[in-house]
Amino acid sequence: MCDRTNATLAGHSHGQAGVSPRAQQHRPEELVGVGESLAAGGAGELADHARQEEMRAAGLRLVQMIRMGEEQLVSPEEVCCALRSSGTEEPLAWLQTELPQMLDSIADLASQKGHTMAQDQVGPVSRDEARQAWLHAAGDFEEAVGECVRSRAHKFREICAMGFSDQQEVLQALYMNRGDVDKAVIDLQRQLLEPFHTHIWQEDEVSIQLDHPNREVSGHGLGSGGYGKPARRRG
């Protein structure tokens, strides 16, 4: 084989074996892109770590506030609702100073919504009912008003289904008993039976005739002074 052929084959083999050192070098813009990707990944990890630490600290604060609330006989639900309603880090103080006014506002707005119904099924709402609605709504004011209306209307219909048809009496009984259906029904039954009880007492009433010589008790045949004759003592 001649020298020219050998040189040609050698050059061809060298070209297939690898790439020249200059071809293996990265372009500057490629290196910049890789650096930016690494920096972005590191920043994202730092942000996630900071977010996790913030959530952990908030959880610890909440646990501490719940424990403080339990010492003051405040339920965890009330503490969480107060945090949402107040937006402050002092829910226990807010419960004492601001919550009563908020509950009154919830009760008033619920009653006003009842007035807009074709038949008022809400009537006056007690503060206790407003508190229950506030807790059920997890501290959301508007939702608490709606829950208060729905709950009272349901109780009204429940009692009316038992045969009590006087709207004002039903609503008043619910208000006086702070939304307790069982107690409200007992009061309504008492009102229905009151005339009957009065009539019975009038029939059984004993009339004492003080102007009679023997002061007899009418209808009982007792002796003088309203007493029977004393029993004779045996000798």
Rank of each mutant, 00 (worst) to 15 (best):
S224T: 13
E89Q: 08
A47Q: 11
L46C: 00
A10K: 04
A58D: 15
I66M: 13
R178I: 07
V170G: 08
L174A: 09
H49V: 04
E205F: 11
L46R: 07
E203K: 14
F156D: 03
G235I: 06
H26A: 05
H212D: 15
V122K: 07
Q16I: 10
H136A: 15
M117C: 06
E205L: 10
H49P: 01
A39P: 02
L188F: 01
P124C: 09
I200R: 15
Q16F: 11
S165C: 04
T198V: 03
Q64H: 13
F141A: 00
K155G: 07
R215T: 14
G87W: 03
E90P: 00
K113C: 02
H115P: 00
V125S: 08
H14Q: 12
A17M: 12
G87N: 05
C160K: 14
S105I: 00
L174M: 11
E70W: 03
A138N: 12
V217A: 04
K155H: 09
V206I: 14
H14V: 03
E45T: 10
Q172N: 13
H220F: 13
M1E: 04
E203F: 09
V145A: 05
C81M: 13
H212A: 15
R67G: 10
G33Y: 09
I66F: 08
Q24Y: 04
E29C: 05
Q168F: 03
G219W: 06
V34D: 04
L31N: 07
F164E: 06
D108S: 11
C160G: 06
L99Y: 03
L222I: 05
D211C: 08
P21V: 00
E77V: 06
A23W: 11
L192E: 14
G33Q: 12
A10E: 05
A47N: 06
Q72Y: 01
L83P: 04
R233V: 15
G114K: 09
S151E: 06
A173G: 06
A133L: 04
E30S: 06
G41M: 12
A107D: 09
G114F: 00
E216C: 05
T5Q: 07
L135N: 03
Q24R: 12
T97R: 13
H49C: 08
H212G: 14
C148A: 15
F141D: 02
T8D: 13
E89F: 10
S86Q: 08
Q209R: 06
E142N: 04
R67Y: 10
A137Q: 00
Q191S: 12
L103H: 10
D104W: 02
C81D: 15
E216H: 06
H115Q: 14
A10L: 05
E205P: 01
E30K: 02
H212C: 14
G114E: 01
F164H: 11
G15L: 12
G223C: 04
W201S: 15
F141N: 06
P28K: 10
A161S: 14
Q189R: 12
L210F: 09
Q72N: 05
R234P: 14
P21Q: 00
